[in-house]
Design a protein around this nucleic acid. Structure first.
Length: 557
RNA sequence: AGGCUCGUCGUUCAAUGGACAGGAUAUCCGGUUUCGGCCCGGCUGAUGGGGGUUCGACUCCCUCCGAGCCUACCA
């Protein structure tokens, strides 16, 4: 359609002695802010300097040169400096609805990935505690990105990196936590963490345990493994509760020997040095990180010779890069600089870096002040507690409506939506009460809209034969126009790796639908059969949209 | 101290450099209600300050102020 409009404009512009390529004109075309301004708009601002005329005057002249609107167009009008194109909306509406009903779950899919494998690493929470709501932002964003990739025809593979070679686990070993249950691990961790912080002696013991683990001491390895196993199992369970699953759990400890290879390779680059305290570090002067830190180095080993996390992380990343050229990783904002440092190391080895999505933290609304959630300090809202509370609240909301509906599903939609609707790089202020509110711009509101649409379809009698479509109402046009934007939203959301675009779209769509069925009764209307298919089209698009956010729709609620 | 990110109605979030800065929530007004609870409708209200680029700036540049995060042996 854009091409046809560009053709019309090209011809008119030529008469005004402006020679532009079709593709250039297409790039200027935009969607007007409201559907009563047309379906496509051509702004004339940029022609002002060329033609030495006011933009609105130019718009009028171009409109004059176009003459009568060709077929497929209802009209072509100017509005100040814009030329607005109104399509034959009845035809457009029928075509769009038909296409949505035919494609169903596939409506909106675009073949960008060509079935290429894409690795996504997300969540990767330290295996020492139950995930809190702050960390879950990672999982929820990652999961949504996986779904988006799949929708644009990649073959995503989900990886969870388990940091089992860590001081945290060593501390838990020191605290003899091998036999603890997952629920009790966090309390233990907070206890031991405080003790170790105060005592140098205990800290030495922690490092000694790490050393034994790296050297493969059987008893130590077995203790580390037990704790890790308990924690990974617990984390996996709670995340699976909210519908987030993984294809591979990759253990850091499996990269100990590959990390040594990385060390050897890096030592050949002449950037690797040893400092007075016998630590090995990578000199990162004259790289982009130089200005960002006090001394631009990446430390790779402790003074006792044990390897540090970055070394194993590089080894792990190399491994992932080998598996696919398309690699995405979800990291907190605290990892921004670290990620750049790793990239510089990869560059030294002649390797590309993964694509990254950084997300800001969720802050807890406290007394007057806001603060970051900290596992070590215990200032957190656990996902499991939050989920329980949300389910409870959902139960009450559902019983008030005296309808059926799965409270857990409703609760999950509330959690996921409240996190995904925000731009990842913005900090979220987390107010438990606000997040559990089931009214307004929320997940439950959208589930409700979907259920409402389903209910209309249930109540309708057998579809009558398609009668001739009458004039469309404004709300019908708005709904149709919103439906037609779905694919563009998917594309943008993929390009920017940003699910919040889809979340916002879903909300706008649901809102317009609610306005539509208030303004346009479906059952018993002369346009009943068309409106019924429009409702069905809405259901399909909202379902597709929500499923990309990891939210499952309900027929009733 | 330096770097990165952010600053929009009271609050919390939107707005590919474009048409009147849009929702939600709270307050207020009205309707509905056996009810100050549920529902419906409506009003009010914002781009941190100062410069600059542009036909046009919430958006880009500079500067100041404020917040969060990061800046060698945690991962």
């Amino acid at each position: 359609m854009k091409e046809a409009i560009a053709g019309i404009l090209k011809k008119a512009l030529k008469e005004l002695k402006v020679d532009l390529k079709k593709e250039e004109i297409e790039r200027f075309l935009e969607t007007p802010p409201s559907s009563d301004m047309g379906d496509y708009a051509f702004p004339c601002f940029f022609l002002a300097s060329k033609l030495k005329q006011e933009p609105s005057q130019i718009a009028l002249e171009i409109r004059g040169k176009i003459g009568t609107a060709p077929e497929d167009f209802e009209s072509i009008q100017t509005s100040g400096p814009y030329i607005n194109f109104f399509l034959d909306r009845k035809k457009m509406a029928v075509d769009l609805v038909r296409s949505i009903l035919a494609k169903k779950d596939n409506f909106g899919k675009i073949d960008i990935g060509k079935k290429q494998k894409a690795l996504v690493e997300h969540t990767s929470i330290n295996p020492n505690a139950s995930p809190h709501v702050g960390r879950v932002r990672n999982a929820i964003i990652g999961d949504s990105i996986v779904r988006i990739l799949e929708f644009v025809n990649f073959k995503p593979e989900v990886h969870y990196y388990v940091n089992d070679v860590s001081k945290q686990i060593a501390m838990l070993v020191l605290a003899k936590a091998e036999k603890l249950k997952f629920e009790n691990m966090l309390k233990k961790y907070i206890q031991i963490s405080k003790k170790v912080k105060k005592s140098e002696k205990l800290e030495k013991q922690v490092f000694e345990l790490l050393r034994k683990f790296e050297d493969g001491n059987r008893e130590t390895v077995s203790k580390f493994r037990k704790i890790t196993k308990t924690c990974v199992k617990g984390q996996k369970e709670i995340l699976s509760e909210i519908g987030i699953n993984y294809d591979y759990f990759d253990y850091e400890s499996d990269y100990l020997s590959k990390a040594k290879d990385v060390f050897l390779k890096l030592s050949k680059t002449k950037k690797l040095h040893k400092d007075k305290e016998k630590r090995f570090y990578l000199d990162q002067k004259s790289t982009p990180v130089e200005k960002k830190m006090k001394s631009p180095v990446l430390v790779l080993t402790r003074s006792d010779g044990t390897g540090l996390y970055p070394l194993r992380d590089i080894a792990y990343t190399l491994d992932k890069l080998k598996k696919s050229g398309k690699n995405i990783i979800i990291l907190g904002e605290d990892q921004k600089l670290y990620f750049l440092q790793i990239n510089e190391a990869l560059k030294l080895l002649g390797q590309a870096s993964p694509e990254v999505v950084h997300y800001s933290f969720i802050l807890l609304k406290g007394k007057g002040k806001t603060k970051k959630m900290s596992t070590r300090k215990g200032d957190i809202v656990l996902l499991s507690d939050f989920l329980d509370e949300a389910i409870d609240k959902a139960k009450k909301a559902i019983s008030k409506r005296e309808t059926k509906g799965d409270p857990k599903n409703v609760a999950i939609s509330a959690i996921k939506y409240s996190i995904l609707k925000n731009n990842p790089n913005k900090a979220i202020l987390f107010d438990l009460n606000e997040a559990l509110n089931f009214e307004g711009d929320t997940g439950p509101y959208m589930l409700y809209s979907y259920a409402r649409a389903s209910s209309i379809l249930r109540k309708a009698k057998k579809a009558k034969k398609q009668s001739k479509l009458r004039q469309l109402e404004p709300k019908e046009i708005e709904l149709i126009s919103k439906l037609s934007q779905f694919q563009e939203i998917i594309l943008n959301s993929y390009k920017n790796l940003n699910p919040s675009l889809i979340a916002n779209y879903s909300y706008q769509l649901a809102k317009i639908f609610n306005e539509f069925y208030h303004a346009c009764p479906v059952i018993g209307s002369p346009n009943e059969s068309f409106r019924l298919s429009l409702v069905e089209a809405f259901r399909i698009v909202l379902k597709n949209s929500l499923s990309l956010l990891g939210i499952e729709t309900l027929e009733r609620m």
